[in-house]
């Protein structure tokens, strides 16, 4: 339905380099990447606010690269909402309808309808400066949806909302998508991507580095960048030596149980699968190494302990364990990882 073909653009500090992806009708497509990767720029190109240096944009197989913005029928909701400060909520929603030169009665009816759908009927006469972030977001959505766009572009729609509002808005966005509107949503938040998308594209250095369903992407990350995005800290270049041994970063051998006998790619394991002890323990764990703690970072799920065992690995343990073993920076510790916890992803 929406197809981006070889888009390149140099704009201010951002670069898009030969960018391509396609979105099917009814998809909830999330472009996931760190801030400052040109995600917003891409949305503005699709919406027609900026023309690309190279490449084409197709909507329903029609080349719209140079089509007028007003004629594209693609709705864009800006990160800061861009609600018109001098118009009431009602006039903000009616703005697109007035541009369409509809009858006054129809405009009124539709405005009220969309306000009801977005749950902002009680705000219609209010001035934008009296609204909260969540309310402004709903106004921006109502205003854009009133246009009845075939495709909705969202620029970090949840980033400036608190957790409670995020949940509500996620629900709302899913509902909009379920009603048949194709959504392209850019974000740097991995959780948001998992919660909403049926298809994800990972942007890195101005390119899409991986694309697929959330499951495909996060179960088989094809780069350290994607692994980090999904919260996996332990991600290494690896070469399988035998059905038992895999060499990590050309420096340390791990036992594995991947069922493979050769190949190169990446090894990853979760921080919570790393066991930390003061002395070497006798257990079923087949990977045991001695190392030194180089850093300890408190997180909301416990303490992340960074250990140098020849390579740097991350272990997640509870504060209780930290106290019990009296762990601190520069302590010498043993770490153990089950061979089954080691995941190998081949890099073709």
């Amino acid at each position: 339905m929406l197809k981006i073909k070889n888009i390149s653009k140099q704009y201010k500090d951002f670069t898009l380099d030969n960018f391509s992806f396609s979105v099917n009708s009814g998809d909830y497509f999330i472009l996931l990447g760190e801030s400052g990767t040109g995600k917003s720029l891409l949305l503005e190109i699709i919406a027609g606010l900026i023309t690309p240096d190279k490449g084409e944009v197709f909507l329903n197989n029609i080349n719209i690269t140079f089509k007028k913005i007003q004629k594209r029928n693609i709705g864009l909701v800006f990160q800061d909402y861009a609600v018109f400060p001098h118009l009431t909520v009602k006039n903000n929603i009616a703005y697109a309808l007035k541009a369409k030169k509809l009858k006054k009665k129809t405009i009124n009816k539709k405005t009220i309808e969309w306000a009801e759908k977005m749950n902002i009927s009680h705000l219609l006469e209010r001035q934008p400066k009296t609204l909260s972030g969540g309310e402004l977001q709903r106004v921006a959505l109502a205003r854009t949806l009133a246009l009845e766009p075939v495709c909705l572009l969202l620029d970090e729609p949840l980033s400036s909302l608190d957790i409670h509002l995020r949940k509500e808005l996620r629900y709302l966005l899913r509902k909009i998508n379920n009603e048949g509107i194709t959504i392209v949503h850019v974000t740097h938040d991995f959780e948001e991507a998992i919660a909403l998308a049926n298809k994800i594209g990972i942007i890195h250095n101005g390119k899409i580095v991986q694309e697929g369903t959330p499951k495909e992407v996060f179960h088989n990350p094809k780069s350290k960048f994607v692994a980090n995005l999904s919260g996996i800290k332990n991600f290494y270049n690896a070469k399988i030596k035998s059905d038992e041994i895999v060499m990590l970063e050309n420096s340390i051998e791990f036992k594995h149980f991947s069922g493979r006998t050769h190949g190169s790619g990446f090894v990853m394991f979760h921080s919570k699968d790393v066991v930390v002890s003061k002395n070497q323990i006798d257990s079923s764990m087949s990977n045991n190494f001695q190392g030194v703690i180089v850093d300890m970072i408190p997180t909301k799920h416990g303490v992340e302990v960074i250990i140098d065992i020849g390579i740097i690995i991350s272990a997640l343990i509870t504060q209780n364990s930290v106290d019990k073993f009296n762990l601190s920076k520069d302590s010498s510790v043993w770490v153990g990882i089950k061979a089954l916890a080691i995941k190998f992803v081949e890099n073709k």
Partner: peptide, 26 residues
């Protein structure tokens, strides 16, 4: 803010309409 003008264009307003309904009043 240029963003407001861009938003108005995206909402289907012509450049003339954007000038008279957004830029000029603000």
């Amino acid at each position: 803010p240029e963003r407001l003008e861009k938003a108005a264009l995206n909402l289907g307003a012509s450049p003339t309409r954007v000038f008279f309904t957004i830029s000029l009043p603000l």
